[in-house]
Design a protein around this nucleic acid. Structure first.
Lengths: 197, 197
DNA sequence: CTTTACAAACCAAGCGCTTGCTTGGTAGCT
DNA sequence: AGCTACCAAGCAAGCGCTTGGTTTGTAAAG
């Protein structure tokens, strides 16, 4: 039944449907508690048939992460490119990452954060390399603001604080609630550039 | 084998040694990937002997969390009681929680954050009830600051942001690095009361 | 000082079940 | 003919946990 697709860039091929179902289940129950039989049942095939599309169960997890990294790196690059000022860029970054993590790619993003250690060290390194572009976009923006004297705190530390704030959001934020995603982005932005505490 | 005790309040009884070893392993490999045979081997007994001390493997996880909640609730109460002003109390709270999560009870605290969903719903409710006192201390402090007009943002939201910031710290903070824990606490405090961004 | 009693702590062995994954074969589309 | 997508069946390994019995520490009774 797979509700709406967990990752935007994914089509409705057998592989795509498997990835969506897997992302959904991984977020709900965690990687270890999700069996290949669960995933197979979610798309209506036999458990053994999964291994026609993926070599191992871990490969499915990696594929989910790979897709979401690519998709969201593109989104982040677009966000940065669409703004002129450093503060504008940072706000766009925060909005984009919030959108990723509580919006359209929420399931896959959450999986990447919470199931990271279920990857073998080898695949962790590969995924980390993919993420480096993503992180550089943040550091560039924050460094620019730092050089402009907007804030004194080390950009590296600020990125970590933002990662924590944003990454925790799925655990409490209610999209139907009184605070919009853009409101929340502004609240977080103020934690960095210090307007209206 | 069991290096320094993961939880301060724990003695060196068989039960205490099991809890320390379990906390260590749960943080390293996660609850699901840690077998009862792993835990048993870490304290030098047979796997079956564990069930003389705990009814189920899940009970071990719950016991770890229960201990760390009790210990740190006491620490938080002490932190609040030792300060007079609202801002001082908040700083003491941040310091105390940072200390919990990267300091003496780091392993058990990390386990509580990352392995929460491995608890049955029943035990989740029980643990949540234990945590309510803990959370109320935060909300009291933040609400007082809010009423004093120190910041405009909703105290509830601010607590969530702080939870995220603090909870993510173990993933990057280096105790041997140039920034001390108290430095970091001040940086985080400034995100709330808005001094020197 | 020895004996008896008893509970806490532990061992050796293994049961029943679930797991990721394999195998050999089939249906359907191009 | 050949490829993709799948099924039916099951294997080997690992899992949490049980069982029945043995050791160890302690302390009162003789």
């Amino acid at each position: 039944m797979a509700e709406s697709l967990a990752i935007n860039g994914i089509d409705d091929s057998p592989r795509g449907r498997l990835l969506s179902a897997a992302a959904h289940l991984f977020r709900d129950k965690g990687f270890d508690r999700t069996t290949v039989r669960d995933i197979a049942a979610a798309v209506g095939i036999q458990s053994g048939s999964i291994f026609h599309h993926f070599k191992t169960k871990e490969d499915i997890l990696y594929a989910v992460m790979e897709e979401v990294i690519h998709f969201n790196t593109a989104r982040l690059q677009q966000a940065v490119a669409s703004e002129a000022t450093a503060a504008g860029k940072l706000r766009a970054l925060i909005r984009a990452e919030l959108q990723s993590i509580v919006g359209d790619t929420a399931e896959a993003m959450t999986v990447m954060v919470t199931e990271w250690r279920c990857l073998s060290e080898d695949k962790q390194r590969k995924a980390l390399a993919l993420r480096s572009i993503y992180e550089q976009l943040w550091l560039d923006s924050l460094s620019e603001l730092h050089q402009q004297g907007v804030m004194k705190t080390d950009p590296f530390i600020l990125r970590r604080l933002l990662t924590g704030m944003i990454g925790w959001t799925p655990n409490w934020f209610d999209r139907e609630g009184p605070v919009s995603l853009d409101d929340l982005a502004d609240i977080m932005l103020a934690r960095v550039i210090g307007e209206a505490p």
